[in-house]
Structures are given as C-alpha cells and as structure tokens.
Amino acid sequence: MISETKTIQESALHFRLRWLKKQIRLIVLMTWRNLQVDFAYKFQLLVDLSWIAIDIAIFTIWGGLIGEAGGDTGLDATTYLLVTVTFWVWLGKAYDDTILALQDEASRGTIGYLVTNNISVNTILVARFVASTIKTTIVTFFILIPSLALFGVVDLGSISLQAGIIVLLSFFISWLFMLAFSTLVASLTIVFKRIGALAGMLHAGLKIASGYYFPLSRFLGDDVHPLVRGLIKISFLLPTTQGAEITRRVLGGGNYSVATLLTRLMGLLIGTVLMIVLAFLVVYRLTNLSRYWGTLEQY
C-alpha cells in the first residue's frame, strides 16, 4: 500500500516535471520567434534607441532644474532620475510590448494557430516579456549603464559585493513582478480588447510612484496636504518603488545600509509573490471566459 502511494506520488511528480519542461521549451521557442520578428523590424529598434537617448537628455535637464532629490537619499536629482530611467527602460519596454502581444497576435490572425498548437495565453505573454527583456537588457546593461558610468552618474567601482548581490536580486524580483503584472493587465485584452489607455495609466502610475518623473520624497514635508503625504507613503510600499529605490541607492551611490536594503528586498519579494498568484488566477479565469465568449481571436 505504501509503495503504491509512493509510485502514484512519483508519477504525479514526473507528470508535473514533464509538463514544466514542456512549458519551458514552448516559452523558449516562442521567445526565439518573437526575437526573430523583432530584429526584422530594424527601424523600430532604431526608434527605441532614439527614444532612450531623448529620455536621458530630458531627464538630465529636468534633474538639473530640480537640484537635490531630497529625503534621506543623499542623491542629486539628475542621478536620481537617470538611474530611475535606466530601471524603467529595462522593465517598461517589456511591459509595453507584452500589453500589445495578444492584440498583435489576434489582429494578425496568429493566435488561433498558437492556441490549437497548445501554446497557451500565458505562454504567449511570458515569451513576449522574456523576448523584450532580452532586447532591453542588451540596451541597458551593455549601452545605458556603461554610458552613465562613463559620465560619472553611476559609480560601479564603489558598489560592495553584498550591495551588488542585493541590487541584482532586486532587478530579478522586480522583473518577476513586472512579468506577473504585465501578464495580468495584458490578459484583459482577450475579453475587453482595447485596454491601451488602462495599461498606460497603470504604467504611468507605477512610474510616478517609483519617482520616475520627480523624487516623491521632496513632497513629504509638513507643508504638504496629509492626503498627498499618505498617498506618497503608500506608493513607497509598491514593489517597483522598492526595486527602484534599491537600484538608485546602490547604483547612484546614495545613502544606504545593507539592513534597509534587505528590508526593501523583502517588501519587493512579498509584493511579487502576491502579484504572481493574482496574475495566475486572473489569466486562468479570463482565458476560460474568452473560450466561452469566443473573444480570443477578436481584436
């Protein structure tokens, strides 16, 4: 009896592992297909690069106008904003591409082929996010961060091993959070079709909360309305704000202690786990609903 139960448990585990292996293989194949398509649109790649260059120029000027980042950051506003821009260049493009992924596949008529070949909505979205991350990683880690280091905005040499590991972990967990968040928002497309405005609003909200446009810590003084102060404090709890804050403090050379970085990392991790669970439930429910309503191929 015990050995029979053990055999059943082993075969269930074997089945799960085989399923996981298959899903990873499908994500890799879909990611490769997305990259093949992305690199076929060379003009678009050029536009993306130009957009980043414009962002850097604008935020350099804007940072100069603001002066100090404020709060306990110990950073000037230019460094604060440029490191935040780098953080969002890395994550934001993948979010934008993922939001459009289902609409793009449906409008081209490719989604039906994918679904009848066992590529799920989840796989399509995850593969899109991974492919875009690969593209933007090339831009951020090989072009943007070295450029910022060259101009003295980022001081890579001053980063300790511990802080380096924490910042890499925060990059990874922030990436997981945005992957889950993008999947959740993009999955709304299969039922509600045009969600561009909502997706843009949520993206802008996360960026503002993480200090993309201006350092929010400047608005925590006593002269600010208590409601605004409360909202800002809530925004500090968002996982992307935690991730951006760790990146700024470490890469920008601001004030930090390893203990505070670890506290932020823990907040980031909890928020990410919650988002993954929520995204999984929403995508599962909406995919089923779209199969009942026949909306999967519509756009």
């Binding site: 297909r33 081209r108 008529g109 490719t110 082929y113 009848t116 070949n117 066992n118 191929e297």
Partner: peptide, 28 residues
C-alpha cells in the same frame, strides 16, 4: 495535440520566412 484546424482565419508572422515558420510549428 491530436487534431489540427486549418482555416483562412489563421495566419502567420509575416516577417518570418516559410522555412522559419515551418521549423517553429514543427518544434511546437
């Protein structure tokens, strides 16, 4: 896995070649 639907409503990524498309679907 055991059925196939062929319909004019189904289309492909047009930036890929016929060989790339066949290889992709063969792999999945």
């Amino acid at each position: 896995s055991h059925t196939t639907l062929i319909s004019p409503a189904l289309d492909f990524q047009k930036k890929l070649t016929l060989r790339q498309t066949l290889r992709f679907f063969h792999s999945i």
